[in-house]
Amino acid sequence: MPLHIIKLSVGTETPEGLREWQTWFQSAYGRVYHTTRMTPKRRDEILDGGSIYWVFKGAIRCRQRVIDLEEFVNEEGTKYCRIVLDPELIETRPYPHRAFQGWRYLTADKCPPDDKQGGGTETLPDDMADELRDLGLI
């Protein structure tokens, strides 16, 4: 069973903003990756179909498949890890999550489904669907 990673999206506020930024990044660097200080120790489980789930404004809203984990050392001798990602962003049903630093492991049973809103609410604007979900109405 794959293991996933969860990470706050810093610098973008929506999946569309992340998509735009990563499109630019891919054109500049030839691929999409996120650099982090700590290398996941459970590499094999993550590379067995795991994804990175992105948190925006207090909720998980999308994911990307993790392709590789590359350790490297910068010019100052500090170790880092590149989390190499599939460029496809898959929007998920918004799932509340509090803020945290760095990244965390995320097990499959804690992951939101891939449908954006679910429950027949596909035509509602995201902010309205979030508010109705918070009120327990959908």
Rank of each mutant, 00 (worst) to 15 (best):
D127H: 12
W103S: 02
I67H: 09
I60F: 07
R61A: 12
E76F: 01
E75F: 00
T23I: 01
K41P: 10
D48K: 12
E45P: 01
P94M: 11
G102S: 08
I5D: 04
Y95E: 08
L8R: 15
E75S: 00
G118P: 02
R43C: 12
E16I: 02
L106V: 06
L69C: 07
M128E: 11
G30M: 13
H4E: 11
D44S: 15
R65K: 08
S51C: 11
V73I: 06
K7G: 06
D86A: 13
Y95R: 15
E131I: 10
R104I: 01
P87C: 04
L132N: 01
W54F: 02
P112T: 14
D115Q: 10
P113N: 00
V84N: 03
H34R: 05
Q22E: 11
P87M: 04
Q101I: 10
Q101T: 12
T23R: 14
Y80D: 00
T36I: 11
R93M: 03
L8M: 13
C62N: 08
E16N: 13
H34N: 09
I6M: 03
T39H: 12
V84I: 07
A28R: 15
Q22W: 13
E16D: 10
E131Y: 07
I5T: 14
I60C: 09
W21G: 05
E76K: 04
V84F: 03
R61F: 05
I83A: 01
L18C: 00
D44W: 08
R63M: 04
G136D: 03
K41H: 10
F25I: 11
F72N: 02
M1A: 13
L124N: 01
I67W: 03
R93F: 06
A108H: 07
D130Y: 06
T39Q: 14
V66G: 09
D130R: 15
E131C: 06
W24D: 07
D115L: 08
T23L: 02
T121N: 10
P40Q: 13
E16V: 02
G102I: 15
E75R: 01
Y80P: 00
P125Y: 11
G50E: 12
G17D: 13
L8G: 04
G119Q: 03
W103A: 08
L124Y: 07
G119M: 00
A59S: 12
G119E: 07
E131G: 06
G11D: 11
R93P: 00
T92Q: 09
G136I: 04
E88I: 04
W54S: 00
G120V: 10
K116T: 02
K110Y: 06
R93Y: 03
V10P: 11
L135N: 05
V55H: 00
I6G: 02
W24L: 12
G50F: 09
E70S: 05
L3Y: 11
Y33P: 05
G102V: 13
T123Y: 05
P125Q: 13
D134K: 13
G77L: 01
L132M: 06
P87D: 04
R82Y: 00
P112S: 13
P112I: 14
D114H: 08
E13T: 14
V66C: 12
Q117E: 06
D114P: 07
G119W: 03
L132E: 02
K41Q: 14
E91G: 06
A28I: 05
G58R: 10
T92C: 14
C62I: 03
D127S: 12
L137G: 05
S27V: 01
D115T: 08
P15R: 05
D44Y: 11
